[in-house]
Design a protein around this nucleic acid. Sequence first.
RNA 1: GGUCUGUUGGUGAAGUGGCUUAACACACCACCCUCUCAAGGUGGCAUUCACGGGUUCGAACCCCGUACAGACUACCA
Length: 563
Amino acid sequence: MIGLYLKGCDYRMTNKELADLIFPNVTKTIEDYEKMYPERNLPEGAVVSRFAPSPTGFVHMGSLRSAFIARKVPKDTNGVFFLRIEDTDGARTVENGIQGIIDDLKNFDITIDEGVVSETEQIGEYGPYIQSERKEIYQTFAKHLIEQGMAYPCFCTPEEIEEIRQMQELNKERIGYYGSYAECRFLTNEERAERIKKGESYIIRLKSPGDFNKKIVLNDLVRGKIEFPENDLDIVLIKSDGLPLYHFAHLVDDHLMRTTHVIRGDEWISSTPVHLQLFQVFGFEPPRYAHLGTVMKVDENGTRRKLSKRKDPEAAVSYYHQKGIPVEAVNLYLMTIANTNFETWWDQNQTLGIDDFKFDFKKMSVSGSLFDLEKLMNISKSYISRLKASEVYDRLLVWSKEFDTEFASILEKNRDYAISIFNIEREQKKPRKDYASFSTIKDCVWYMFDEYFTGDLEYQFGKVNDPEEIHHILKTYIEKYYDENDDKDTWFSKVKELSEELGYCSDMKAYKADPDTYKGSVADVSTVIRVGATTSSMTPDLYEILRLLGKEKTKERFEKLYR
RNA sequence: GGUCUGUUGGUGAAGUGGCUUAACACACCACCCUCUCAAGGUGGCAUUCACGGGUUCGAACCCCGUACAGACUACCA
């Protein structure tokens, strides 16, 4: 009897015993976790979704778009949006990577209801929200599968896997670890136990119940029905370091966190059959999936490619923060690419905001679209043009304090003056649209500040270039005609008088009809005054500019040019 | 190689069998307005929806095939 027992003929190691051998420290069951993370008590139709990046340090335009939508939908439905950090791959993790993501989201007004709020802090009842802190949970679920005979340890080395792949390629067969190629599937529990005890390295694989010849249907929220062959690959559940692979972590986390909608990039679409299968194996209800088209960019050689973090500076979301593009403008842009009907709606409901618009998955563009920086800038221009001068001041100050401290202190010293400058041709029906972002404002107004005004004149005065003539115009104007107290009409009629006195045509129509009979026109005279006062030929309304500069300063600047 | 997805002007796109001689927005061009610039106004910019077949009285829209592009096919996410 004893001999037989030792030979192992009579004794079969059970799955439970194998599971205990692999995960001796796992004492909880999946039922325990079901109780710990109960169904959420939310109103009918409430969406629970999430943003789940790797801690690579910053958010990319494509992910920001996903995050934006994943935030928007719960907002529309009184649901929950949470941030989960997917750090199961050590190679991807970057120091302070979590903080970078949190900052980027904060900078774009994407607020989270639950999840990771700082490097050290998490909020919400469904955590932890950092995957590396959930190791035991994943292992519990993996152990359960081993007990059920639905998962097994695999001892194949990367070299062996590569050999299998090459053989499959040679035989023109489907590539992957499946069917008879899944060698470790056929080991006995005794063999498994023995190799584990010997200290061999192993991973845990799913014993896929799928059949490649059968179909599975995914009802994608943006694309509709998609049919796939069932997954029959014995995918990796747990890596040799004990941490899960994405697919398995997705199942465990999104089930336990009671996610209703998974909103992610369409690079995930082909692995959805795996995910669906995982939910099926556990008997859990899968979430709804929405796969978003890739955000693309045109390469130097004219082909489209995915927007890349490394190659494209505009892909990093921090770029917009640095450029001083208002968050509202970025969000407006994201909304217009997210829902194709938003732009028209927004045009007709200018007083309303993004929060008043209801997002609809069906109104999403299915195919990957080109990221249109120009369109964004246009939206930004329009948005800034609608701000009040004081708002421009306040927000420019905030931006400058972070990115241009010199300008910030100048602004602080000259608050009212600066606001008056920003108010030129603003706060009217058709406001001036020349500020594309906060970072470009200085380039538009520098000449108004003595700190930046050098008096260096690069501009040739256009039509009038004779120094004597220029001096004559400026001198006559400032001494004889200019009066700070004039209103705009009086001011301009004086410029016309000046023109007449010096032999320039004061009526543009008359001038255009017969340019040769005059030295030039009132336009040329105005240009001389404009350049004389600012050294720039492109400024907003000249009357306002001179008024803000004041007679003394204007005169000073003119005199600099006399010499 | 396999699986899946997509393809409407320079760009984002509307459009799901007759209302489309293909909307709207950005960009571009011309003209107008005008003291410059910006803004604004007017007009122009796809005889045609990747290509080839088919179904239909009728197709950008439905079906089949082809081409091209993209994603996935990792102990990455």
